[in-house]
């Protein structure tokens, strides 16, 4: 395959990858995080204290773990909080993002390898070799 054909394919793949990234960014956003939290009545919260109501964590606990403690700021959380994707959308958003991440890593590694080969070749030919730093006799070169 000619170099230009390969480069064109890379460009196409890059465009697709970028679109996938955009989709991943949109998909990974859970509506749960941005939904308004029910505000407890008559609670004049002092700005600065954590607004985390224990009840608001209920939709974030891992599936299978016991439900959150009742709506009372004084109740202590007794179970460990395990972060995990809650909706199908989140689950797939994470998978798409990771797939794109590794694909990008592979592609960038491939391109960087070509750059490395190129710069090694240039160095080997003696082109663009920087003048060695002047050193006194006997001093190590590095």
């Amino acid at each position: 395959m000619s170099r230009s054909r390969r480069a064109l394919i890379l460009l196409g793949v890059w465009l697709v990858g970028g679109l996938a990234a955009l989709t991943a960014g949109v998909a990974a956003q859970s509506p749960g995080t941005l939904a308004p939290r029910p505000v407890p009545k008559q609670e004049l919260r002092v700005p600065g204290t954590p607004s985390a109501n224990p009840a608001s964590q209920e939709d974030r606990l891992a599936p299978g773990s016991p439900p959150a403690s009742p709506v009372s700021k004084q109740e202590r959380r007794t179970e460990a909080l395990r972060p995990a994707p809650q909706t199908i959308r989140e689950k797939w958003g994470i998978r798409v993002f990771l797939a794109w991440l590794w694909f990008t890593t592979g592609a960038l590694l491939y391109l960087l390898r070509r750059l490395v080969r190129e710069s090694d070749r240039v160095h080997g030919l003696g082109y663009a070799t920087p003048e060695p730093t002047p050193r006194k006799k006997g001093e190590p070169r590095f």
């Binding site: 956003q29 995080t33 941005l34 607004s51 608001s56 909080l81």
Partner: peptide, 12 residues
């Protein structure tokens, strides 16, 4: 602990 819990649950 509550602020870390908030980071883990509420903050995007």
């Amino acid at each position: 602990n509550a602020s870390v819990a908030r980071i883990m649950t509420e903050v995007p």
